[in-house]
Amino acid sequence: MKKKNFNLIAGGAITIFFLLIALLGQIWTPYEPTAMDSMAVNLAPCAAHPFGTDNFGRDILSRVMAGSGSTFFVAVSTVLIGGFFGTLIGALTGYFGGWADNMIMRFNDILLSFPSILLALIFISLLGSGSYNIILALGILFIPSFARIVRSEVIRYRDLDFVKSARIMRAGHMRIIFAHILPNAGVSILTAAAIGFNNAVLAEASMSYLGLGIQPPDPSLGRMLSEAQSYLSNAPWYAIAPGVTIILIILGFSMVSEGLRALKE
């Protein structure tokens, strides 16, 4: 490699930093994230509250820490659901082809042409809001994109000579798919996962902002922003901490995915 993979290193560092913050937020926060303090409403950033307080006097830093936790929880769970089923479906349909592959991929293409927010909204309007429903909705929605990526990778390798060679040696289909072909798709799957994290964070934040995602009293970055909007003129700092946190988390993931893509080449 000519240059050090800046994107991968910096993106990885940002991601790990916020992951640690989020983990820390699960065991310790400066204040109780839900504790209200009528004496300290809409405080500007100060020594006691580095990011200020909100309209109920809750400490914004503590809420951002806790909120990052739910963000990561949602993102990781959705990517796991989408990644697992998507990889499975993509690998099998790509390898075996045939009408089932045709049907599933047609359906996939239609689903993929819709923005995930819209589909998530439809899901939520059917299932109701709440963090588990968000995970379920986004997880299912991510299946097609994983399936498509894995499928195209499997198809790329399916007819190569080393696969033929394995077949000639009488290796079973499952062994060929999982031991011979899929290791080649590793970087692509990781890239897809990084993009998936990126989209999941964005989708969760948007849904929560719209009031259809994580419900109070659970802290959520998107929700905080929608509350902050009402106080934009007199307490603009309320929006800054959660907003910048979302941006950095997304930036971290997108840099990681860029870096992985460069790694593939």
């Binding site: 190569l160 000579d161 080393f162 011979h180 290791p183 080649n184 590793g186």
Partner: peptide, 8 residues
């Protein structure tokens, strides 16, 4: 180039 598994 195609006959050996590049990932192994």
């Amino acid at each position: 180039f195609g006959s050996l598994n590049p990932a192994r």
